[in-house]
Design a protein around this nucleic acid. Sequence first.
DNA 1: GCCGTTTTCGGCCCGACTGTTTTCAGTCG
Length: 620
Amino acid sequence: MNDRPGFQPRAAQPVTAPGGAGCRAYNSDECFRRALVLGLSLEQSTMPVHNADIAAIFTEIADLLEIQDANPFRVRAYRNAARTLEGLARDARELIAAGEDLTALPGIGTDLAAKIEEIVATGHCQALTKLHRQIPASVAELLRLPGLGPKRVKTLFRELGIASPTELYRAARDGRLKALPGFGAKTEQRLIEALSGRAAAPSRMPLAQAARYAEALRDFLGRQRGVQQVEIAGSYRRRRETVGDLDILATAATPEAIMQAFAGYEDVETVQALGATRATVVLRGGLQVDLRVVEPKAFGAALHYFTGSKAHNIAIRRLGQRRGLKINEYGVFQGKRRIAGRTEASVFRAVGLAPIPPELRENRGEIEAARAGQLPRLVARDDLKGDLHAHTAASDGNNSLAEMAQAAREQGLEYLAITEHSRRLAIAHGLDPERLARQIDEIERLNETLGGITLLKGIEVDILEDGGLDLPDDLLGRLDLVVGAVHSAFTLSRAKQTRRILRALDHPHFSILAHPGARLLGERDAIDIDWLRVVRAARARGCFLELNANPRRLDLTDQHCRLAGEEGVLVAVNADAHSVAEFDNLAYGIDQARRGWLGPEQVLNTRPLPALRQLLRQTL
DNA sequence: GCCGTTTTCGGCCCGACTGTTTTCAGTCG
């Protein structure tokens, strides 16, 4: 788990937005009034304030307060609130516009609710502006450097006036750091290395990419003499779409042996720490890995602890505390007596909870649900009966219709929709009406010879900038389903982008909105749309949302899956396979669906074919 | 700054490792 705040540096840019476009659409009078009060003109109100912007401001306040040595619990309150905001499916400004009470959110009291309203209305927070008068914003950047926490950053600023990484680099190179109290030659050297760019800034790695490192390392450790259990915990086990680092947990007859083997693993680039039961290394490729060795009787407690999330752990410990129990990675203790810890289930039982699946452990209501015996039965890979988004060599795929059908059948699927790109996506060799008509005939012929699987006739039609579809109605009407997707004009304003999607959903033949956010992890941000309106429009029109299982996309996000589930919109978990190998990606889609609290009944393609056809007809 | 089966005050999660120290503070997860 690397839940260190600011691990994913996000610039806390002041958002110059008294109101913002989205706000104006909801509550123009109020925005106008606020703009007048603040002496700002509405012409400035272009950039809407998102939860991530508010969270970034709260995180920066927390950083600066910490450097000032403020009450640590006050600091934590800002961090908790930032985490709450980042975990919401809906933007705070929408909640405000809908008149909802922000103090109902966990970790948000009257003070922080007022600050959120202030930021939504103005794009700024007075409290942060005030802090900036005492400490420049760039000082907080120093916290991202290895070995620097609030205390040392404060020392640097107070003693040497160092307020930025550049100034720090200069001072370190001049040898001025090691004279400071609490600093030494090693710290100085480490900072020089980090600042000279030799150590790349840590960034989160897509889950599927991390899996390659993780599985190889797990196998290696499992082969070591005396090793009993090896489990990868952390966000990897929670199946987050990206992981910051790997947390590996093991039990072994002799801890020293596995620690040494770990440090000597062929892919290790640097060993950052090596203790008796805990070690940290960085692999070639930049992934940090922590290994922890515990006794078998503590394995469950340690697995729970290192699986996290941090917010979940804190909530569980607080629950234990109220029962007079102390919970740590070694077990659950009543006084000196250990009452649980060998298994995760025993830890949950000790605090009166049903076992919570790792994917739900984000402190987003799973503890309350477990206490009430209302944890959802989550969808599993085996629940899937088909896949509703696939390409062949006719557009930008690699295999033939027959090869894709056979691969899908080998994956245990009963149906597969063929959904090539449409003509506008020329780069992907998209189909024009004539070629699509030919493929329709071809699929019908092939279906007569295929056994054990049915191909469905579909298309991944481009949603044009104005919300129209890229192929004529009469042709779309001949298909079993129409999957529509955005592949262009990603940067439209929220109002325009939302209007575009709503118009596409309105189309009489529209079935499934593919990769609705159109994001690419780490490469392209999601388009800006009013999610609640889109989800509700999909429900009203009998349409469905896709969870695209391609590891680069994983789109819907977990939060939007949950929103869809709560609003009664079925989600299609599709591999978007461009080759026979890519059906394996369905597992990543299922992971994400589980993180979004979806059960089998909330996933469209868990239906057998007749039931699926009936649902699709309702959209056409 | 938040929160309440300890409800408007007094708590707030817990431990390992490193480096700088002579017994521990700071950082990190």
